[in-house]
């Protein structure tokens, strides 16, 4: 790696992608004329963090989860309750919540990750719905369906407030999330995961502990969702169970698949498109839902691998023609 010339390193899709993302984050504020646009971008960033984690599970380990909104909700409410009702410092509340969610994901993940395909989907869905029901029912703590107010995030007396501050915080965390995900993918564990995706039995035969790896990725993706949830709660200053619903779980999976499975940047693009789309479609009023559904269907029919991999293939095909170079990794 080190002996490779820097230029080649830059040209590799991974590093190039990281740099491109960092560039976009650095330059985007030039185009954001008011707080409303900042707000949209912060929401995109938070969703993208969840999707980068979820993509590890869906795209690389090949395990579907229809319950990740449950982890997001658990993170959001854990932080909200500890920080707002019990007066914990937000950072401590977030850490404690993240640990608790990781433990929950581990305990839940161990038995249910033995399930395959749609049965796993059902089990994760059931888990998500149970989390949602607890949140709406235990209104003494959670405020019930109407939600609760959340104190602003603060670290050692410095209060994070305002869309612009949050923009940089979320931007940095997104870069961190992407970096972590990419490192995981390139590690031996990541290779084991990909082996799992193509054939679980095959992977076991060559000595990969399938169960252990699946649970590990499940926990990691749950942690990403939980942290994003905690941040979202503090950023919004108010949280309702809407973010823990089954529909939000579906939304998250859709973002991952839409952007392109097994592509970290695809997950980011998917989050960006699907978070912004409702804002753009607001002009359609009563037809908004129809158009949204049609866009989703159309994209998946014509770009079945998702936006980013489909376009990347297009470029690759072209550059292959030009240089005759061999294809780089997916």
């Amino acid at each position: 790696m080190q002996s490779r010339p820097i230029l080649v390193g830059l040209a590799s899709p991974r590093t190039g992608g990281m740099l491109a993302l960092a560039g976009v984050i650095a330059l985007l504020p030039l185009f954001l004329s008011n707080k409303y646009f900042y707000d949209i971008v912060v929401l995109v960033g938070l969703n993208a963090i969840v999707c980068v984690g979820l993509n590890l599970l869906i795209g690389y380990a090949g395990q579907i989860s229809l319950g990740h909104a449950g982890f997001f909700g658990a993170g959001a409410y854990g932080s909200a309750i500890l920080a707002s009702r019990f007066g914990w410092p937000p950072i401590a509340a977030m850490l404690a919540t993240t640990l608790a969610v990781a433990l929950l994901a581990y305990l839940v993940g161990r038995p249910i990750l033995r399930l395959k395909g749609h049965y796993l989907a059902m089990a994760t869905l059931g888990m998500g719905i149970i989390v949602f029901m607890v949140i709406t029912t235990e209104d003494a703590y959670t405020g019930g369906p109407d939600g609760i107010a959340v104190v602003p995030f603060s670290i050692g007396g410095y209060v994070l407030q305002g869309e612009r501050v949050w923009y940089w915080v979320v931007g940095a965390l997104l870069l961190l999330a992407v970096w972590l995900a990419q490192n995981l993918i390139d590690s031996p564990a990541g290779r084991a995961l990909r082996a799992l995706h193509s054939s679980e039995v095959g992977a076991e035969v060559v000595g990969i502990n399938a169960a252990k790896h699946k649970v590990m990725v499940f926990v990691i993706s749950a942690v990403f969702a939980s942290v994003a949830g905690s941040l979202a709660a503090h950023y919004s200053g108010f949280i309702t169970p809407g973010k823990a619903t089954f529909l939000h779980s579906i939304e998250l999976v859709t973002m991952v698949v839409f952007g392109g499975m097994a592509s970290t940047f695809g997950a980011v693009v998917g989050a960006a498109v699907l978070t912004t789309l409702p804002q753009l479609l607001a002009v359609f009023e009563d037809y908004e839902m129809m158009v949204f559904g049609a866009v989703m269907m159309g994209t998946m029919i014509f770009l079945p691998r998702g936006v980013v991999p489909s376009i990347a293939r297009l470029f690759q095909a072209r550059s292959k023609q030009q240089i005759g170079d061999k294809e780089s990794g997916a």
Binding site: T254, V257, M261, M289, M290, G293, M300
Partner: peptide, 26 residues
């Protein structure tokens, strides 16, 4: 979308369900 992965097909049906709900509303 023949030949697409199962997850892609699932997302298509989710898109379809949103589309049909929107259509029914109109």
């Amino acid at each position: 979308a023949r030949g697409a992965s199962v997850v892609t097909l699932i997302i298509i049906t989710i898109g379809a369900s949103i589309f049909l709900r929107g259509l029914a509303m109109v």
